[in-house]
């Protein structure tokens, strides 16, 4: 391991501060699921991925990551900056005019680390599968990771992709689901029930593992286990339970912070709960 669990937790803590401050500064953005996925992104970029922050679009011979639920851009931008893709000071430009940190991630402004635009939901898994196929053609043994929201599983394109990957033995991909049970209009079970996701993915032919996405040790274990399952003829799906808003007591477990920004008082309250570890940007 490159970092101890406690070091990684400290990084995730700083990432949560970045998320809150970015969203607060422009009074827009999506803090809820960003906070919920801070531990996953930290584990991925600081421990799991074999990646090169000297960004190259083609990403040959390195692991690739694709974010399908692009609205959680704050957590991704923070982790990209904190892991060396660009200067952390650029986080202050989030959602502002002429910024590379668009509301939803894009390649258009050339932000290092981003390989596809996402925001319109349900498209990321297909793209990740395409990148995984390109690696197979090239005999490139590195892996492709993807993160999808659970709400966006209501988009039909996902299920086209879920069908394609097992049929074509795309076994160099690890797709994680941010299984927080919330979406804009309320709990997923109320808006449009996802029913038994594990059974659905297994029926489609994926190797499914489950994990707690807010426990650093478990995230690392599950992703290492997922890596050990690659190359065996099946794509791997990590059904990762998280809590939206994790880390801030008044934001946790509700859809209400999906897309709203904290006020000055709320920000102060939230930051009081989260340790500054690497220095605010």
């Amino acid at each position: 391991m490159k970092h101890t669990i406690s070091e990684l937790e400290d990084i995730a803590s700083q990432v949560r501060r970045d998320i809150l401050r970015m969203v607060h500064a422009v009074q827009s953005g999506h803090p809820g699921a960003s906070l919920g996925c801070a531990d996953f992104f930290t584990a991925l970029y600081f421990e799991v991925l074999n990646h090169n922050p000297k960004f190259d679009m083609d990403g040959k011979n390195e692991d690739l990551f694709f974010l399908s639920n692009g609205h959680i851009s704050p957590v991704w931008y923070s982790v990209l900056a904190r892991s060396g893709y660009f200067n952390v000071s650029e986080l202050s430009t989030f959602r502002k005019l002429d910024s590379r940190l668009q509301g939803h991630p894009t390649t258009h402004e050339g932000l290092p680390g981003v390989r596809i635009a996402s925001g319109s939901l349900g498209q990321g898994l297909s793209v990740a599968i395409g990148a995984a196929l390109a690696k197979k053609i090239d005999g490139d043994k590195s892996l492709v990771f993807a993160l999808l929201g659970d709400g966006e599983l209501q988009e039909g394109q996902n299920w086209e992709a879920f069908m394609f990957a097992p049929h074509n033995k795309v076994d160099n991909i690890i797709a994680s689901i941010d299984y927080n049970g919330q979406q804009i209009d309320g709990p997923t079970e109320k808006v449009l029930s996802l029913e038994n996701l594990q059974a659905k993915f297994e029926a489609f032919g994926w190797h499914v593992i489950t994990s707690n996405g807010n426990d650093m040790e478990e995230i690392l274990k599950s992703l290492e286990y997922a890596k050990s399952l690659t190359g065996k003829g099946k794509p791997i799906l990590n059904l990762m339970s998280t809590q939206m808003g994790y880390g801030v007591d008044f934001m946790v477990g509700t859809h209400k912070w999906h897309g709203s920004a904290p006020s000055d008082e709320q920000l102060a309250n939230a930051l009081g709960q989260i340790k500054e570890t690497l220095g605010d940007y």
Partner: peptide, 26 residues
């Protein structure tokens, strides 16, 4: 044959996979 992908009746997935294949220079 190794450079052809039959995606079935799933055009949205086909466009996404095509976009992904360009990453890696295809």
């Amino acid at each position: 044959p190794e450079r052809f992908f039959q995606v079935g009746i799933a055009e949205a997935n086909m466009m996404g996979i095509a976009a992904g294949l360009t990453i890696g220079g295809k």
